[in-house]
C-alpha cells in the first residue's frame, strides 16, 4: 500500500520536520500516528497523502513514487485517497450533499451515479436526512462526519485522518471512531494522527510514535472492545 524510505522533509525556513523515516504500511491496516505537537505527525500525513514531496528519500503510494509524478498525476493519486481534516475544510456556501459530491465531480462523475454515491456516503455517516442543509447548521461532530463522507465518497482504498476527534467531546469522538472502525472492517487502510490515548485504547491497530521528526516506536495495540 505505502512505503517510506529514509524520508526527510525540510521546509524553506530550514526546519526539519521529518528526519529519515522508513516504514511500510500494508493493505487494510489501521495505523495511529502519535507524538507531541511538532513531532511531525501532520507532515508525515501530508507526505502520505501526496500533498507534499519529500526533501530526500522516497514515498511510494500504491506502487507510485510521488517524486516521479507530475502535478496532474499527483492530483489523480490524491483522488484515490480519502482525507479527513481536523478543521474539516468544508465549503460553507454549499449544501451538505454538494460538499460530499466534490471529489466525485473532480473525478468526472455525474448524474444518477453521483447522487447514488453521495447518498450512500451520507447514510454511512448518518447525515442522509440533512443532505440539503447548509453545513452552517451542523454541529462539530456532524461537520466531522460530513468531512468523512466526503473522504469516502470516492471509495478510496486509503483514508488519512489528521486528528479527526481533536475538537470533539467524548460522545461525538466515539461516534467518529465507530465510523473509522467500520472502514477498517471493510478492508480500507486507515492512517490516523492523534495525540488522544482514549482513541488508541478504543481501537486495535498499529501505533507509529514520532519523536522530533524520527520514528520513536512502531508497536501494536489491542482493544477488548474492538475485538468483540
Amino acid at each position: 500500500m505505502m512505503a517510506l524510505d529514509t524520508v526527510v522533509k525540510r521546509y524553506p525556513d530550514g526546519h526539519e520536520a521529518l528526519r529519515g523515516i522508513t516504514l511500510d504500511i500494508e493493505d487494510g491496516e489501521l495505523v495511529f500516528v502519535t507524538g507531541r505537537s511538532g513531532a511531525g505527525k501532520s507532515t508525515l500525513l501530508r507526505l502520505m497523502a501526496g500533498m507534499e514531496r519529500p526533501t530526500a528519500g522516497t514515498v511510494t503510494i500504491n506502487g507510485q513514487d510521488i517524486n516521479r509524478l507530475g502535478p496532474a498525476a499527483l492530483a489523480r493519486l490524491r483522488c484515490n485517497i480519502g482525507l479527513v481534516f481536523q478543521d474539516h475544510k468544508l465549503l460553507f456556501d454549499r449544501s451538505v450533499a454538494e460538499n460530499a459530491a466534490l471529489p466525485l465531480q473532480i473525478a468526472g462523475l455525474y448524474g444518477h451515479e453521483l447522487r447514488r454515491r453521495v447518498t450512500a456516503a451520507l447514510e454511512k455517516v448518518g447525515l442522509a436526512d440533512q443532505a440539503k442543509a447548509s453545513p452552517v447548521t451542523l454541529s462539530g461532530g456532524e461537520l466531522q462526519r460530513l468531512c468523512i463522507a466526503r473522504a469516502i465518497v470516492n471509495r478510496p482504498s486509503l483514508v488519512i485522518a489528521d486528528e479527526p476527534t481533536g475538537h470533539l467531546d467524548q460522545g461525538y469522538a466515539s461516534a467518529i471512531l465507530d465510523i473509522f472502525k467500520s472502514f477498517h472492517r471493510a478492508g480500507i487502510t486507515v492512517v490516523m494522527a492523534t495525540h488522544d490515548d482514549t482513541t488508541i485504547s478504543t481501537l486495535a491497530g498499529r501505533i507509529l510514535h514520532l519523536e522530533d521528526g524520527q520514528l520513536g516506536g512502531d508497536s501494536e495495540t489491542d482493544s477488548a472492545e474492538y475485538a468483540t
Binding site: M51, P71, A72, A75, R76, L77, R78, C79, N80, I81, L83, F85, K89, L90, L91, L102, P103, I106, A107, R150
Partner: peptide
C-alpha cells in the same frame, strides 16, 4: 481561496 484549497487537497488538477 478556501474552495481552491479544498479542491486542491482532494485531488483537483490545476486545469480543473
Amino acid at each position: 481561496r478556501d474552495e481552491i484549497e479544498v479542491a486542491h487537497l482532494i485531488g483537483a488538477t490545476s486545469r480543473y
